[in-house]
Design a protein around this nucleic acid. Structure first.
Length: 517
RNA sequence: GGGCCUGUAGCUCAGUUCGGUAGAGCAGCGGACUUUUAAUCCGAAGGUCGUGGGUUCGAAUCCCACCGGGCCCA
């Protein structure tokens, strides 16, 4: 989509009437006219005594002091100076009303020819979308609308393009994300989601800090993109003359900090996965990972449910979150404790498949085939099992649920469960059928860890599995120096934001999601 | 990767069934109007119908390819 006018900078003399360039030329003429009048259409500074919300409060407080005083003249504050963007205008000859908005709120401006005198003529050069500065007392109009009675008026920034229509707003899904500022200007929900997301990240930080964790930053550009199952983005460092990757997880660096004696660390940051885009996935997204020495996955489970409930309380004032539009079913209560469900039994219940009785690829493939499930050729055992879980089990996990104790083969960074050779201490949290968090009792046996990585590398070769995890020598070197027993957590900030806003697409909580060209 | 839907004025949408050369509202432009709240009234404008091919006397409409966007499946 490229309908933006390439010749929008042409002079009025060209007489170009194609498309919106005519609208733009009108605006350019107004800018020129302002300059002819000695008015800077883009002044560097603006005086302002009150935000719009403060101006309304000022009036309401003033009006309240006059309560019961029937004989007095109508309420009228001292003059204020406010500024904002003109969102609508209603003109009738010698008087106009403007709806002006700033980040705090909105107020009506009453512009009367007799009060404004010379400044009234400026209204001819004013467009919806322009920023204005207005001085005058706050009053109530005959129709009861709180308004600034403009005694002076100035344009403090001209707009060159029209805003979306006032009544239906901006509907086009593509324009809403490509030009998010228009979405924010015309759809209140976009603003609410942006604020909610900010509050989610802030609440997560406050919670972690209250538990004694410190926030750290680890590299985004890494020589080896390890610590998860994903294909990385590649880049190149010129001065070093080497290829680098964008991280797919923060895990291995954070654990090195635990080795170094930072017992409780967390990081909120972007990670990057070179994979498809859909309602749940953006190639760059934000996670919070935490690592706590001397804790195990049971401790982390308790912390996770407390964290999510805390975030919901902080953002919505309630642990009950709305069900997304279009999904029937009741609202979701995130209050702890959440049920802990054994993964193996849950898969049996959902699909009839017992992964311990299908412990090799062929057995699992044929069992899936018997049940009419699609078996992708050249998949690994764990890819097949993951498919069983995501197809049969995950959609049933609507209320918050922990799935507990995963197969070792799909968890190369998690410690074996005592008494088991093929099960690790790992859990994932699910809400509304979506994965929210992933956590383990971290593997701190360097010999076992090396074997797990080597198994991943073999799998990469044997099955051409580009998403297999990677052996990271510098991480192993750290673990070989001794890593305490540690509980780790990864939780998706985008998913959390979707949860508390009731949105069913990550695009609605990501200001600038990735799009084609 | 496959299927379905979708792209028309700056914005929101009609028009595609059944081919006849594009309409409305808002915004903008000209005019009237000193209490409006989607202000109202009058007037004149504004369009490579996503792009490129094809069929046809004639294509927004039918066919093909491509470029965006959405939903479902994999």
């Amino acid at each position: 989509m490229n309908q933006t006018s390439e010749n929008s900078g042409t002079s009025p003399e060209t007489g170009d009437t194609v498309g919106n360039s005519r609208l733009i030329l009108d605006r350019l003429r107004k800018i020129e006219r302002l300059r002819e009048l000695g008015i800077d259409p883009f002044p560097a500074r603006v005086k302002r005594s009150h935000s719009l919300a403060e101006a309304v409060e000022l009036f309401e407080a003033h009006e309240a002091t006059m309560e019961g005083d029937e004989s007095s003249t109508p309420a009228r504050t001292d003059a204020v100076t406010v500024a904002g963007r003109v969102m609508a205008r209603r003109g009738m000859g010698k008087m106009s009303f403007l709806d002006v908005r700033d980040g705090s709120g909105q107020i009506q401006v009453q512009a009367r020819a007799d009060v404004l005198a010379d400044d009234f003529g400026l209204l001819e050069l004013l467009d919806i979308g322009d920023f204005v500065s207005v001085s005058g007392p706050v009053i109530r109009t005959r129709r009861g609308q709180i308004s600034v009675e403009a005694q002076s008026f100035g344009i403090i920034s001209k707009s060159m393009r029209p805003l979306p229509e006032k009544w239906h707003g901006l509907q086009d899904a593509e324009t809403r994300v490509r030009q998010r500022y228009l979405d924010l200007l015309s759809n209140e929900r976009a603003v609410q989601n942006a604020r909610a997301r900010s509050q989610v990240a802030s609440a997560v930080r406050r919670f972690m800090e209250s538990r004694g964790f410190i926030e750290v930053e680890t590299p985004i550009l890494v020589p080896i993109a390890a610590g998860g199952f994903a294909e990385p983005f590649e880049t190149h460092h010129n001065a070093l003359g080497r290829d680098l990757f964008l991280r797919i997880a923060t895990e291995l660096y954070l654990k090195q900090l635990v080795v170094g004696g930072l017992d409780k660390v967390f990081e909120v940051g972007k990670i990057f996965r070179n994979e498809g885009i859909d309602a749940d996935h953006n190639p760059e997204f934000t996670t919070m990972e935490s690592y706590e020495a001397y804790a195990d996955y049971n401790d982390v489970m308790r912390m996770t449910e407390d964290l999510v409930a805390f975030v919901a309380m902080e953002v919505n004032g309630d642990t009950v979150v709305p069900a997304p539009e279009g999904e029937d079913g009741a609202t979701i209560d995130l209050a702890p404790p959440w049920p802990r469900i054994d993964l193996r039994q849950a898969i049996i219940d959902a699909s009839g498949i017992d992964f311990r009785e299908c412990s090799n690829r062929e057995a699992l493939a044929s069992t899936m085939h018997e049940r009419g499930m699609h078996v992708e050729p050249n998949s690994t055992w764990q890819q097949l099992l993951d498919k069983v879980i995501s197809a049969s089990l995950e959609p049933t996990l609507v209320a918050p649920t922990f799935l507990v104790d995963y197969p070792l083969a799909m968890s190369p960074l998690a410690k074996k469960k005592p008494g088991h050779e093929d099960i690790v201490e790992r859990f994932e949290a699910f809400v509304l059928g979506r994965e929210l968090a992933n956590a383990f009792t971290e593997l701190n046996d360097p010999v076992d860890q090396r074997e797990r990585f080597e198994q991943q590398e073999r799998q990469r070769d044997e099955f051409d599995d580009v998403e297999a995890d990677r052996l990271d020598e510098s991480f192993l070197l750290a673990v070989e120096h001794g890593m305490p027993p540690t509980g780790g957590l990864g939780i998706g900030i985008d998913r959390l934001a979707m949860l508390v806003t009731g949105e069913s697409s990550i695009r609605e909580v990501t200001l600038f999601p990735q799009l084609r060209s």
